[in-house]
Design a protein around this nucleic acid. Structure first.
Length: 122
RNA sequence: GUGAGCAGACGAUGCGGUCGCAUGAACGCUUUAUGUUUAUGAGGAAAGUCCGGGCAUCACAGAGCAGGAUAGCUGCUAACGGCAGCCGAGGGCGACCUUAGGGCAAGUGCAACAGAAAAGAAACUGCCGCAGGCUAUGCUGCGGCGAUGGUGGAAUGGUGAGGUAAGAGCUCACCGGAGUGCAGGAGACUGCACUGCCGUGUAAACCCUAUCCGAUGCAACGCUUCAUGGUGCCGACCGUCUUAACGCUUGCUCGGCGGACGGUUCCGGCAAGAGCGGCUAAAGCAGCAUGGCGACGUGCUGCAUAGAUAAAUGACCGCACACGACAGAACCCGGCUUAUUGUCUGGUCACAGCC
């Protein structure tokens, strides 16, 4: 992921859950809040609820790839947590990517008014 | 050919193309960041965490208890609760399979319902003899007998014969069990002979016997470094109390060590953050030779390449095939157990057919 850093502290996750904007859907749930940094931070949650280790790894990979394909259109300066739901592993990669492009990212832009984006910056 | 049974291999992908990730190496760059190229990149169970070990730290002044594990024998192994071979018991026509397989002749407990009686032996019922009275087998009394008594998982060994007033291991034969002796075996055990006539089941009930076990697990543990905050511990000072308390020492006891408690203040150190190490070559695998029935040992040769840390192995397209089951490394090994689409290989057994 070119313009995004991995979020790896439990405190950041908790902040996102409590104070962030929640954007639910059938495949994933996104929590986001501004972080006042010049880049985005992405965290992925795939809980035991959706299946065993194989299923959870697959969900993580799908989310990471879909975000990589669409991160250029997202607003800058967000802490973002994407939570996988149990329908995700069977759905496939292109479905999630299409969802982010058509609905997820526009919702983020609407919530945080992001005119700036990576594509414009670079 | 049909049907069984055993052992084993593979187990999900491969090739081409586009995008992408982690680690190592090389190159470029003043260093970092980053870039380019290249190599490598989940399993037979990686799982459950059920055993055993390595490794690490703690305690080391030890002893005992408690607790836990194992339970036929001999071996293999670093070790094991694992494995191999054998013995006993059970199942199968057979190949073969199953087996928590010490001790109720140390003690305690339990044995519902049924049944006369469930562990102390007797009572009850019954059989037989004698006596009494009565019309009378019946009834009453005394004595003998021992297991006949619808049960029950289990009834004082079983079956048959003799014996007797009636009976009884009372006697005999066979069987079961016990003890002793002899023979065989490394041993579990097996065979034979003799004695003798023997009180059930349950130890996956307490318990007893034998053997083994210190505790905690890589978030162990070691190193480096910064800032903040005054949280915990150690040191310093003051006060109080006293030889018994208190604290530490593996869960407890003995034993051992330390005087103990409270308050104050400031200085120094440690831990909590971050980074690095631990972190992958290991009692390893394959082939050949050799010893052994086998587990396995020995020698030689060759191969040795995942090491992430919010956690890398992915997505899409085309072709091929078994049309992709169960399923994802987290310190490392040896086992066990559980999950699993299927494909293939090699012996073996029974039945049928042919020669």
């Amino acid at each position: 992921m070119l313009y995004t850093v991995v979020m790896n502290r439990n405190r950041d996750f908790q902040l996102c859950y409590r104070k962030g904007v929640c954007i639910p859907s059938r495949l994933v749930v996104m929590y986001a809040r501004p972080n006042r940094l010049p880049y985005d931070r992405l965290g992925i949650t795939a809980g035991k609820k959706i299946g065993g280790a194989v299923v959870r790894s697959r969900a993580r990979r799908l989310i990471r790839q879909a975000w990589r394909e669409n991160e250029c259109d997202a607003p800058i300066g967000l802490d973002l947590v994407i939570v996988a739901r149990h329908a995700l592993p069977e759905a496939g990669a292109d479905k999630l990517s299409r969802y982010l492009r058509k609905e997820g990212i526009p919702a983020l832009r609407k919530a945080f008014g992001g005119d700036r984006s990576c594509s414009e910056r670079s």
